[in-house]
């Protein structure tokens, strides 16, 4: 059980690190652009990344994402740190087939496509608060029920995670002797069962609380003129077509 706890604690610290880091505290030009426009432009950047295998085109998109990030003052190391692992993983996956078919460029271009599209998405995440994003999706006519559920998932993840940790630590505190593997699995199963049982009960309580207090993820903000941003995305698209 102690191995599981240690592993969980490691994952927990990584989880909290990721969870809070996305709420990037530095305010940049991109933060003040309408999130609905940012979602649309990010989709264009991802589309430009995945529609081609031509190296120059992919590099145009990738470089422009990092130039955009640098220009508005986003920490580029952080952007790269949050994107490289997916690309590295993609490279490990495609390397064997690339060598088998003697198409060595594929092992480089395929991960670059992934890096480019992930970087575009991470740039959106780093510059948009989650409630802003949901509010924008609501304006784009996404179903309200699903947005409300997504908002609740986001809000209660930290709470539920703390509950899970408490249950696991309580189990560990009550343990008097070293357990065998079967015992560890059995107790782990009971702990997780208890966790889901508490989740069901918490869900009922929250529903009642929401009925009495009301619920909303509305976010109102004044956004600035997006023309330079739109011109930049249009410029990249034109260069991509010409390249």
């Amino acid at each position: 059980m102690h191995l599981l706890i240690e592993k969980t604690l490691r994952e927990a610290s990584k989880y909290f690190h990721d969870f809070f880091i996305h709420e990037y505290t530095k305010k940049t030009y991109l933060h003040r652009i309408d999130p609905a426009l940012k979602i649309a432009c990010t989709s264009i950047l991802v589309l430009l990344s995945i529609l081609t295998f031509k190296l120059t085109k992919i590099l145009v998109v990738l470089l422009s994402i990092y130039i955009l990030a640098f220009n508005v003052g986003i920490d580029m190391v952080m952007l790269l740190k949050r994107s490289w692992l997916f690309a590295f993983f993609a490279m490990v996956i495609v390397m064997p087939v690339s060598f088998l078919e003697r198409d060595y460029s594929y092992a480089f271009i395929f991960p670059l496509r992934v890096l480019s599209s992930i970087s575009a998405l991470q740039l959106l995440i780093l510059t948009t608060k989650f409630n802003e994003m949901l509010s924008a999706l609501k304006r784009l006519k996404a179903p309200e029920v699903i947005l409300e559920i997504v908002w609740l998932t986001y809000r209660y993840t930290v709470v539920m995670f703390r509950d899970l940790m408490n249950i696991l630590l309580a189990r560990e505190a009550r343990r008097l002797r070293k357990s065998g593997h079967v015992e560890v699995f059995r107790k782990g199963g009971i702990a997780l069962g208890l966790f889901f049982l508490r989740s069901v009960e918490k869900g009922e309580m929250i529903e009642l609380a929401m009925k009495s207090r009301g619920k909303s993820f509305e976010y109102k903000s004044r956004y600035i003129n997006p023309l330079p941003y739109l011109a930049f995305i249009l410029g990249i698209t034109i260069i991509w077509v010409i390249a």
Binding site: T8, Y15, I149, Y156, T157, M160, F195, G203, E204
Partner: peptide, 20 residues
Amino acid sequence: SNAMIGVISAAIFASQMLNW
């Protein structure tokens, strides 16, 4: 209940952090 679905989603999200 949307709250129930949301909280169970959060619980599933949290339990996905348990790596074996």
